[in-house]
């Protein structure tokens, strides 16, 4: 086929929300290179998803079904997709950069003696040149251009929010059902039911104003200073992962890829450097204000207003000024 193959993610018949962003990436890469784009969905009892995909502009839809694929296992997926990639022979295999893809795609690429180009935030491709895949390094402090030097296939996973799902081009495609050869004995891990620790009582997604705190706060005893600012602004309090890991704020207040995704009117980031895992959870905010001591912190790349300085001086002054303005 020598085109692009996008492997979408679903669970129990529901799409992962990043699947169509990856599909947009695949269609755009194929268009830039003048090659075809196909898509695959893997699972059990997913005919409806295949039909939905067949309404997109694609060369082919591979409906990859097997009863052993009803529940995700890395062994099941690697075995299946190895067969699919060998059969379809694409030049580029594109995935959404989900937790599930992180679990199996590196092993899949290894079967072809390739290295997954993971967590891609931009693709530069034109004509017959080798595409450049942009990744972030050092928690977003630097960008890096990666090129595959080995022959096809190349394996690429796309970070959330890099491509827009609403840019997927409609069309029509033929469905090809594939029943991979898998034995139950090949699946070594036995996954249990999914569960949540506790019912989340904080819904940050509806908060119009969020004050969020990161590592820069230093210690738990300093959190009340941020709480006072949040209270003054009538804002919900949120945090980056390390703060919740340390138990300084409950996990349900975490924003980022492992926490909530928010898009408030104002996101005020205090002492947050802005690693990609955090940025994907808040970069849809209408306005972002960042206060950080490091002028090179990646949070400033997405900030409308930035303050480089000591948060322990600026936050109390800001709280005071907000209260004065409101009174």
């Amino acid at each position: 086929m020598s085109g692009v193959l996008v492997v979408l993610e679903q669970r129990a018949g529901n799409w992962n929300r990043m699947s169509f962003e990856a599909l947009a990436a695949g269609q755009q890469l194929a268009a830039a290179l003048g090659i075809s784009c196909s898509a695959a969905v893997v699972g059990s009892g997913i005919a409806a998803l295949g039909t939905e995909l067949a309404s997109k502009r694609l060369d082919k839809v591979f409906l990859v079904e097997h009863e052993l694929l009803g529940e995700y296992t890395s062994d099941g997926y690697v075995t299946t997709l190895e067969q699919l990639v060998k059969q379809a022979a694409p030049n580029y295999v594109i995935f959404p950069h989900t937790y599930q893809v992180r679990d199996f795609a590196p092993a899949l690429a290894t079967r072809f003696r390739r290295v997954l180009i993971s967590d891609v935030v931009a693709i530069h491709a034109e004509g017959d040149g080798t595409p450049v895949f942009v990744r972030q390094l050092l928690q977003g402090k630097l960008n890096a251009d990666y090129k595959q030097t080995a022959e096809a296939p190349a394996f690429i996973s796309i970070q959330a929010g890099t491509f827009r799902a609403d840019t997927v081009v409609e069309g029509a495609a033929q469905i090809e059902t594939i029943n991979p050869a898998i034995e139950a004995s090949q699946i070594r891990n036995k996954p249990g039911e999914r569960f949540r620790e506790s019912a989340s009582t904080v819904d940050l997604t509806v908060a119009p104003v969020i004050v969020s705190v990161g590592r820069g706060i230093g210690e738990a005893d300093n959190i009340p200073m941020i709480e006072e600012l949040a209270a003054a602004l009538g804002a919900e309090l949120a945090a980056s992962r390390p703060i919740c890991d340390n138990g300084w704020l409950p996990m349900e207040r975490q924003v980022g890829s492992s926490g909530q995704t928010v898009a408030p009117k104002l996101y005020l980031a205090v002492g947050i450097s802005g690693a990609i895992q955090h940025l994907v959870g808040m970069k849809g905010s209408k306005a972002v204000i960042a206060i950080n001591k490091d002028e090179n912190a990646p949070i400033f790349e997405v900030a409308d207003f930035g303050v480089v300085g000591d948060l322990f001086e600026i936050v109390p002054a800001l709280t005071k000024a907000v209260l004065a303005a409101k009174s």
């Binding site: 003696r113 390739r114 290295v115 180009i117 450049v132 972030q136 390094l137 977003g140 630097l142 960008n143 890096a144 251009d145 990666y146 090129k147 595959q148 030097t149 080995a150 970069k283 972002v288 960042a290 990646p298 400033f300 790349e301 997405v302 900030a303 409308d304 207003f305 930035g306 303050v307 480089v308 300085g309 000591d310 001086e313 600026i314 109390p316 002054a317 800001l318 005071k320 000024a321």
Partner: peptide, 30 residues
């Protein structure tokens, strides 16, 4: 074997937004 991937270039990320930087004393910034 030769590496399958090459890191061709590293550079500072382009800004996604035009950031207005505020300066002054903490009170002026506030």
């Amino acid at each position: 074997e030769a590496a399958a991937l090459k890191l061709a270039r590293v550079y500072l990320p382009e800004k996604q937004k035009k950031t207005v930087m505020l300066t002054g004393t903490p009170e002026q910034i506030a």
